[in-house]
């Protein structure tokens, strides 16, 4: 088997209403580019990015989900294995913000108890179309004890910071464990994947 090129594997999940920019947020982070012409995500999509934190190579396995209600039975099955969940709304779309509490309930119901959550108010470059004040985002994040960033995939604001912060938060509570296989079941496997062996297996 190929040599492992990373120390830890973190599984992250992006959720939120359709059209808030989840795919663009992920594309900015994984490819450092912005593309307005994304077609809607059907079911689930997947990207990988390796980052370095505190001297450790961390492989982020990021799952991008479809936002529409119909896909919830399909996408909620991914919550269980996720170690971090980014919940995205669009600051120019009030409805996407109103639905945040619904998404948070979904996390409570389907994700691991110790999952790291983060709230993102995306499209913050579109100040002239803003309908959700930053303070409202901060307030709901405070109420739920989760971190909050306003982001823009287009203007590249806070995207990398958000992912790295989420990864750091997960790293902080990652126990040192025995080497684990990479093929961790995201849909039913729980908890945190431990240290990776650097040698061949």
């Amino acid at each position: 088997m190929a040599k492992k090129t990373y120390d830890l594997l973190f599984k992250l999940l992006l959720i939120g209403d359709s059209g808030v920019g989840k795919t663009c947020v992920l594309f900015r982070f994984s490819d450092d580019a912005f593309n307005t012409t994304f077609i809607s995500t059907i079911g689930i999509d997947f990207k990988i990015k390796t980052v370095e934190l505190q001297g450790k190579k961390i492989k982020l396995q990021i799952w991008d989900t479809a936002g529409q209600e119909r896909f919830h039975t399909i996408t909620t099955s991914y919550y269980r294995g996720a170690m971090g969940i980014m919940l995205v709304y669009d600051i120019t779309n009030a409805k996407s913000f109103e639905n945040i509490s619904k998404w948070l309930r979904n996390i409570d119901e389907h994700a691991n108890e110790d999952v790291e959550r983060m709230l993102l108010g995306n499209k913050c470059d579109m100040e002239d179309k803003r309908v959700v004040p930053k303070a409202k985002g901060e307030q709901i994040a405070r109420e739920h004890g989760i971190r909050f960033f306003e982001t823009s995939a287009k203007a590249n604001i806070n995207i990398e910071k958000a992912f790295l912060t989420l990864a750091e938060d997960i790293l902080r509570k990652t126990p040192v464990k025995e080497p684990n296989s990479e093929n961790v079941d995201i849909s039913s496997g729980g908890g945190v994947t431990g240290w990776k062996s650097k040698c061949c297996s």
Binding site: I42, F46, I74, S77, N183, V184
Partner: peptide, 21 residues
């Protein structure tokens, strides 16, 4: 199966959209 690659990870889109994407 061993790699835990579930059919839902890719066939959902393949099947519902008749491979159009």
């Amino acid at each position: 199966e061993e790699q835990n690659i579930k059919p839902q990870y890719f066939t959902f889109r393949w099947l519902t959209l008749l491979l159009s994407q």
